[in-house]
């Protein structure tokens, strides 16, 4: 059976162990560690890409085209145009690991602002923001991306815009829920009674207490955004060439899947490993920071 209301003595004892730093507690979770390892691996690869001894990700090796299998020159083989898959993977990681966190960061700023305003003020501000969010949330996420990117064209900027439109309402809803619970806390009343202004209350009294939930959410959203960027690439709506793009790599080679499956399998696996990393990290953090 599950643990029920932890008896009094243990509750008292537990406050002790909470002195351990929040960030340190992540290291006690095995899932978080695996996630952290996967993410760190790709971040390191992306950062080190220019100094790694890799072939160019965009040059075709005509000799390898006939035999695109892994070799000493091309560790993971080449794609249908004879370009080195490993190099394309690692340079592709640079793209995805800069675009996805950037998009999520912008979406978080917009979403948190929306949620804070709606939750703290309530009334008509809440109604307007919540109704607007409901409309966006009624769209399936992917349809938003497809309609937007197909019409305004694929670029980093537009992916950021699309991510913001698609994710900010969800982030706003989470923030609003948190703020609704927190604003009734007595320390908020105490802050009002010492003439703190609203912006101060939001940023200093409320936001820090939403921190852990929002970090976990951001982590999950980075994972989703990586998937979305991959899907856009796969649909032919990815960043324009010559940017190597994992989804695009799959799209280009999926037609020859029955001949050279590795060309599609490798970028697919890379994408899954990175997303898995973020998802495990988020899960580990949630476990570690559970109140």
């Amino acid at each position: 059976m599950a643990t029920l209301d932890i008896p009094d003595a243990v509750q008292v004892a537990r406050t002790k162990s909470q002195t351990r730093s929040n960030w340190m507690r992540i290291f006690y979770s095995r899932t978080a560690l695996v996630g952290l390892f996967l993410v760190t691996f790709w971040v390191a690869a992306a950062l080190l890409a220019p100094i790694l001894p890799l072939p160019s990700p965009t040059d075709s090796d005509v000799m390898a085209m006939a035999n695109p299998y892994p070799s000493a020159a091309h560790w993971l083989g080449t794609d249908i145009l004879g370009r080195d898959i490993l190099a394309r993977l690692i340079f592709g990681a640079r793209t995805v690991l800069s675009v996805a966190p950037l998009s999520v960061a912008v979406a978080m700023i917009v979403g948190i602002t929306m949620g804070m305003l709606a939750g703290y003020y309530g009334g008509w501000i809440d109604t307007v923001i919540s109704r607007f969010s409901d409309i966006i949330l009624a769209f399936p996420v992917l349809v938003i991306y497809v309609i937007l990117i197909a019409n305004i064209g694929p670029s980093v900027m537009n992916i950021v815009i699309a991510t913001t439109i698609a994710s900010a309402p969800g982030i706003g809803r989470i923030t609003r829920g948190l703020v609704l619970g927190l604003k009734e806390q007595e320390y908020i009343a105490a802050a009002r009674l010492r003439a703190e202004n609203t912006l101060y209350i939001m940023l200093v009294e409320l936001l820090p207490n939403c921190r852990s939930m929002l970090i976990v959410d951001a982590c999950l959203r980075i994972g989703y955004t990586i998937i979305t960027i991959g899907i856009l690439g796969f649909l032919g709506l990815g960043l324009p060439p010559p940017n190597p793009d994992w989804g695009g790599m799959v799209k280009e080679s999926v037609t020859v899947l029955n001949v050279w499956p590795l060309m599609s399998l490798i970028p697919s696996a890379a994408l899954v490993s990175l997303v898995l990393g973020f998802n495990l990290l988020a899960d580990g953090m949630r476990e570690a920071w559970k109140p």
């Binding site: 899932t31 994972g223 998937i227 991959g230 899907i231 796969f234 989804g247 799959v250 999926v254 899947l257 029955n258 499956p261 599609s264 399998l265 697919s268 696996a269 994408l271 899954v272 997303v275 898995l276 998802n279 495990l280 899960d283």
Partner: peptide, 26 residues
């Protein structure tokens, strides 16, 4: 079960499509 679920949600459709086609078609 959690690790299974988290892993599965990390596999976008085109990737699982590629994996499954490779396995059961090729």
């Amino acid at each position: 079960l959690s690790v299974i679920c988290i892993t599965f949600t990390s596999i976008p459709e085109f990737a699982s499509g590629v994996f499954l086609v490779t396995l059961f078609v090729i």
